Amino acid sequence: MAAGGDHGSPDSYRSPLASRYASPEMCFVFSDRYKFRTWRQLWLWLAEAEQTLGLPITDEQIQEMKSNLENIDFKMAAEEEKRLRHDVMAHVHTFGHCCPKAAGIIHLGATSCYVGDNTDLIILRNALDLLLPKLARVISRLADFAKERASLPTLGFTHFQPAQLTTVGKRCCLWIQDLCMDLQNLKRVRDDLRFRGVKGTTGTQASFLQLFEGDDHKVEQLDKMVTEKAGFKRAFIITGQTYTRKVDIEVLSVLASLGASVHKICTDIRLLANLKEMEEPFEKQQIGSSAMPYKRNPMRSERCCSLARHLMTLVMDPLQTASVQWFERTLDDSANRRICLAEAFLTADTILNTLQNISEGLVVYPKVIERRIRQELPFMATENIIMAMVKAGGSRQDCHEKIRVLSQQAASVVKQEGGDNDLIERIQVDAYFSPIHSQLDHLLDPSSFTGRASQQVQRFLEEEVYPLLKPYESVMKVKAELCL
């Protein structure tokens, strides 16, 4: 049975990233139509530049190519590739079939990587351009969430054990800070992308030097003109047959890092959902379990974690691919890159769409948070109580021993009897502590235990987050809708 299948058929496997999760716009960027249309555009740009620099290419040939950029006979191309065992030459023939007058000058002087690699770089750039505003929107939604809850005390956790208090907004800023680093890295790697350009079979530009009869300047002009037509500021000066596969490492490393950030955020949300302090959106008709109707599973956060793990592992592909590119190139890269580049971007696209949807509907339960604080705060307040007693004339050592005994009794009630923490009640009825009984409410005010959390939130948002989001103001209103 021949390899390949009808990918629109229910009898043929289709990647869930495309069929179930990723956005239509990201799927289109990695589609065959987008790819092969870009090949034709690159052939047109090459012909236009070659004509401008004096090669015998007519206006009629150029116009014929322009008129057929979208006229792609995919069936013919597939048949040609089956016959020739070469995808680029299959599309040269297919393009030439609908451009008979231009057929002889299509791909003039070029090698397969002229269309293959340059198209990949265009796709990487455009895919990054799709991700950047999506990530900015996630940051914006979380920034709104953090600002609104900047002063809401909550129990902090280290080692997932109760620690000092923080605020809900401050905790959210930990998430935002990681995503801001990801946004900066995505922008950097996007701006650092260079075009492969017009380089020939081993990167020496020998074929173009021959076409222009040894004119170095025209060869350099050709490279520059096509690079500018493709919208790049610069091209690699040095290439082998391909652009260095280190570029793929750079791009997928940034995406993998984004995956790590999203995994951490969504894990926190899942843990908070278990504590009943916070939940992701839950639709009115949504079913959490087929057997347990009360369940409210954090399905979206779980999906993000599941896909983020996949995204983090994909960076190993370009690392290994770059390491086995012998001399000017081997074909070890080809099949692998067809999979890992598309999957990385479709996965990143999915987790950003999902995280935006989550961040637009996060639900906080202040009463649950308050109750958990009441359970733990008495123990945390013991040092403040000791200091207040010393100020009232008591002995630190005597007070410490009193607190120690009462704390152990209260802990026994919590752990052995399943009761509430009654340390404060014990202190309130103990005559030894009568000098500070009137101060206990103040000493137990949760806001006095959150330090500068709310001020940190305000400063972080104003100095770091809002300036970073400013270039994306025009796209901030787009909502994230999930079908599944």
Rank of each mutant, 00 (worst) to 15 (best):
L331F: 00
S67Q: 10
L346W: 08
M312R: 04
N297Y: 04
M387N: 12
E376H: 06
K101R: 13
A410V: 05
M292I: 02
I269H: 03
P378A: 04
N336P: 02
T267G: 13
S151V: 10
Y34I: 02
T166G: 09
Q41W: 15
D420R: 04
P318E: 02
D182N: 01
C98P: 08
G393I: 06
S140V: 15
D430W: 07
D445W: 10
D420L: 06
G116W: 01
S15K: 06
C180A: 11
V247N: 09
F345A: 12
F327A: 14
L174R: 03
P24E: 11
Y13M: 14
N185I: 06
T201P: 08
Q286I: 03
S301N: 04
L222M: 08
V414I: 15
D349S: 12
L331Y: 06
V368T: 10
L186E: 05
A308E: 02
L346Y: 11
T52V: 13
I62M: 11
Q51S: 11
L186A: 12
I123P: 02
T201H: 01
T239V: 08
G240T: 11
A103S: 11
A110S: 10
I57D: 00
S407H: 03
Y294Q: 04
Q184F: 10
S290T: 10
L272F: 06
I287W: 02
E220H: 11
A102R: 00
F433M: 08
L211D: 06
L222I: 07
N68C: 10
S15F: 15
V457E: 04
G4N: 15
K246Y: 03
T202W: 01
V368P: 03
S412M: 10
S359I: 09
S412E: 14
G96V: 11
A78M: 11
T330C: 15
Y365N: 14
T201N: 04
K402D: 07
D317P: 07
L174K: 05
L132H: 14
G231E: 08
Y294S: 01
C304I: 14
K367Q: 12
L155P: 03
S23L: 06
H159Y: 01
L314H: 11
T382D: 02
R125V: 09
T244G: 12
L258A: 12
S323T: 05
V189R: 10
I106Q: 05
Q439H: 08
L124R: 03
E328R: 02
V368F: 03
C340M: 10
Y365K: 05
H7K: 15
A47G: 09
H91A: 15
D422F: 11
T204W: 01
S359V: 11
L272E: 09
P24T: 14
V251A: 15
A78I: 09
R125I: 05
S306Q: 02
D333A: 03
F282T: 08
P56C: 09
L484Y: 15
E343Y: 08
T166H: 07
A146L: 01
Y365C: 12
L155V: 02
F195T: 06
Q356Y: 13
A110D: 10
L352V: 10
S12W: 10
T313A: 14
A410W: 05
G259R: 01
L128P: 03
E81N: 00
P446W: 03
C399Y: 04
A77N: 13
A136C: 14
E48P: 01
T242L: 07
Y472A: 11
D129G: 13
L55K: 13
S253N: 13
F157E: 02
A291Y: 03
V364I: 10
L461R: 03
D144V: 15
S306L: 01
S448D: 14
D73F: 10
D59S: 12
Q63P: 05
L124A: 10
R188F: 06
V198G: 10
M316H: 14
N274I: 04
I105V: 13
T158C: 01
